[in-house]
C-alpha cells in the first residue's frame, strides 16, 4: 500500500514564524558573539587559538538561516499568477511571505558572516 502522507519537504510551509527565524537567528548570534568574547576573555584572559564554541555557534546560526531560506525558496516557486502578489489570497500571502523570508535569510546570512569575521581576524582580547 502506498504511503498517502506527503513528503517532509512538501509539508513544510512558510508562515509568519518562518519569516522571523533568520533575523532572530542573526540577533541571537550577535548577542552570542558579544557574550562569548566577554566571558572567554574574562575567564581565560587571552584569546583562544581556535575558538571552537564560537565556530560551532556560527555554523549552527548559518545552517538555521540557510534552512529557512531553502524553505522560502521552495515556496516561492509554487506555480501561480504573475507579480505583484498583493491580493488577500492564500497563494499571494504564501508568495509574499516566501520572498520576504528569502530576502531576510540572505541579509541575515551575510550579517552573521560579518559579525563572525572580526573574531577570526582580530583574535585579541584588548
Amino acid at each position: 500500500m502506498k504511503d498517502e502522507r506527503p513528503r517532509t519537504k512538501e509539508r513544510v510551509k512558510v508562515t509568519l514564524w518562518t519569516l522571523i527565524v533568520p533575523p532572530t537567528t542573526w540577533a541571537a548570534h550577535f548577542l552570542f558573539s558579544y557574550l562569548w568574547a566577554a566571558i572567554s576573555c574574562a575567564k581565560v584572559g587571552k584569546f583562544a587559538t581556535f575558538p571552537t564554541l564560537f565556530v560551532v555557534g556560527t555554523v549552527i546560526a548559518l545552517i538555521v538561516i540557510a534552512a529557512s531560506g531553502w524553505i522560502a525558496w521552495r515556496q516561492s516557486r509554487v506555480p501561480g499568477d504573475a507579480p505583484p502578489h498583493q491580493d488577500s489570497t492564500d497563494v499571494d500571502r504564501l508568495r509574499f511571505l516566501a520572498v520576504s523570508t528569502m530576502l531576510l535569510a540572505g541579509l541575515s546570512f551575510v550579517a552573521v558572516i560579518y559579525t563572525a569575521l572580526p573574531v577570526v581576524f582580530i583574535g585579541n582580547c584588548r
Partner: peptide
Amino acid sequence: GAIFPTVVLTVLLLFALPAMRP
C-alpha cells in the same frame, strides 16, 4: 544594490580587519 555592495563590503572588511589587530 545588493550583490555588488555585499562583495565590496566583504573585501573591505577583510582588508581593514588585519589593520585593526593590535
